[in-house]
Design a protein around this nucleic acid. Sequence first.
DNA 1: TCGGGATATCGGTTATTTCCGATATCCCAA
DNA 2: TTGGGATATCGGAAATAACCGATATCCCGA
Lengths: 99, 99
Amino acid sequence: MEQLEIFKALANTTRLNILLWLKDPQGSFPGQEKYGFEHGVCVGQIQQKAGLTQSTVSEYLAVLQRAGLVKATRVGQWTYYQRNEEAFAALSQLIQQEL
Amino acid sequence: MEQLEIFKALANTTRLNILLWLKDPQGSFPGQEKYGFEHGVCVGQIQQKAGLTQSTVSEYLAVLQRAGLVKATRVGQWTYYQRNEEAFAALSQLIQQEL
DNA sequence: TCGGGATATCGGTTATTTCCGATATCCCAA
DNA sequence: TTGGGATATCGGAAATAACCGATATCCCGA
């Protein structure tokens, strides 16, 4: 969890939005109903909401994952993404203590 | 204090370092002794430590200031910069509550 | 085992960021 | 009032990021 990498990941409107949407999956992704929410939300749903191409959203999710801000779970042909709340808590701590 | 602007400001190694250095001005800027520390550290000291040109460092400090992370005080021909601790506290809060 | 759906990766174009040198401004002291 | 020191701003070259379309991979069901 490299701190520069985290801030770079957060320095983009779409990626920030994705993180906010994932905070309330049920509210933000009604289309996800049929897949369930237990592992998060799958890429297609996020792509649709972001209004960007599949490749871009996939890359953005990879950036967020490399920063440790989200976790991915592969189930069959779907990859579900969810927030990694520990990372946010750690970041909050880091800012008020070390930064 | 726009949150995207803050993360962009933090997404650069030199700017992160400047913030860390300003956390301990006495320890980080022995050359500042003769000017005193009450208003912060002046640009020349920061530039010297960063090892970048004067224009670049000046611009970086402006970025940090626009993000609200540092405060500037002009005294004579010097501009002193210091951290805005309220901004860090607010950012820490924002991350654990809204983000 | 083949076809199609979901996601990842690759290569490219354009926008943005990084960092520089040159120059402008602003302030003090002589 | 002018010269020089400190900082800010401007214009540009190079590196990086933001996206895209095309293609590859991976998985499932027929």
